[in-house]
Simulated scan of single mutants.
Amino acid sequence: MSFPDRPIAQLLGSNGPVHAVTYSAGSGTYILTGSSDRSIRLYNPQPAIGTAGTAAKTKDHGFVTKAGHSRATIPQGRLIQTYAEHGYEILSLACAADNARFVSSGGDRTIFLWDVTTAQTLRRFGGGHAAGVSGRVNCVSFAGEGDSLVVSGGFDTIVRVWDTRSGGQGAGAKPIQTFSDARDAITAIVVRGPEILVASVDGRVRTYDVRTGRLTTDVISGTAGVTSLSLTRDGRSVLIGALDSRLRLLDRENGTCLRTYSSQEREGDTKRPVWRNEELRVQSLLGGRERFVVAGDEMMGSSNTKADTEPPASSQGSTPDGRVWAWDLLTGREVATVTVPWGPPGAATSSRSIGRDGREKERRNVTSCLAWQDGGWGDHFCVGGTSGVVTVFGPR
């Protein structure tokens, strides 16, 4: 299986950066996106009949793929529904297994449980100090039998478990369980049966077994925060992203690091990171039926463009396009670097952003959120970021 680097659709409509994307559960192809414009959008990435454009052509250069997306038309997916109740940016989304409900969280310290069809909220949790939530909620996940529970974590360092069947709403609702062991913000949560895996900026991954009451702590980095978790389907290993420009595959049974994934370029006698994740919460995941390790890119410096085998026509460092990186899970070898276009032709220059100093800001598509169809076992994946456009990729 080759890495699916062909752009097959773009999802438009957001008025700000996209912070969260997720596929419908199972083998479904519908996509939910959460944006800084406070809205959640549901898309069918398949273009309407007669509206599909011509997918971008790509060229392979060894193990690095450089796609000339800006010179081709990418079909636009269809917006199905918009969900608007949040008061601040959306930071996390999760679909229930029956695809009838989803849960969202964001900067307003509130967790919303939604009915997909009616676009109405069924439950609201948090939302103020009365419920104990004192900061933005970075991550949410379903848990329990029939997805009857929701687990949340965020800036206030506390993991909370909410009962979706309770009658409480908003600030009046109380979590049925809390975990307060983290010493810094919670950035990612993964639930598997009775286990809750929690990533924190304090450099730890904590696993709570709610059935036995056992807590297991893995120290990932003493100085760099952990920002991303992706669990293998058998539950034996977990992919961990941290703010030291490294991804790690950890054996959950004994805590051994099985493989490290990074990208470096030689400059004389030293090596400088090319793929970079040092400041922002950039997501990583397992895809291609667990053949690939995939990550976004915070694009913090123009030197990142040196990884491209064919630099864009514009000057180096000025292109607004983002990128997605992929490594072979078993060997750790870099297998693809895929360009993520800012948007349709002309979108990159259609508006200007002015900084406090009065100068125009350099536009970069920081690719911070990813999702792979069917939990990493499907044929497609999507990526969102600061451009506000979500790009869907599939096989050639």
Rank of each mutant, 00 (worst) to 15 (best):
F393R: 05
R136T: 08
P175W: 05
G34A: 04
Q177V: 11
R136E: 12
G343H: 01
S2K: 03
N304K: 14
G107C: 12
T65H: 11
A348V: 07
L247P: 07
D244W: 04
V191L: 04
M1I: 11
Q264H: 15
P45L: 13
S368R: 11
M299Q: 10
I80G: 00
R252A: 11
I80F: 01
G203T: 09
E265Y: 12
V116Q: 02
L329S: 03
I354P: 03
L258D: 02
R124Y: 04
R289Y: 01
V116C: 00
S284R: 11
T232D: 08
T33D: 02
A242P: 00
S303R: 07
I186G: 08
R160S: 11
F155R: 07
G388E: 06
E265C: 07
H61I: 15
G268D: 10
S387C: 05
G343I: 04
A72C: 03
S315N: 06
M1T: 15
V159R: 09
P344E: 15
F102C: 01
V205S: 07
T309C: 00
V274T: 07
P194I: 08
I31R: 05
E362P: 00
N277I: 03
D184V: 13
D328V: 06
S27H: 15
P344Q: 12
L249D: 04
Q46P: 10
A130T: 12
R291I: 06
R109N: 13
Y23V: 15
Q76Y: 09
T207I: 14
L330K: 12
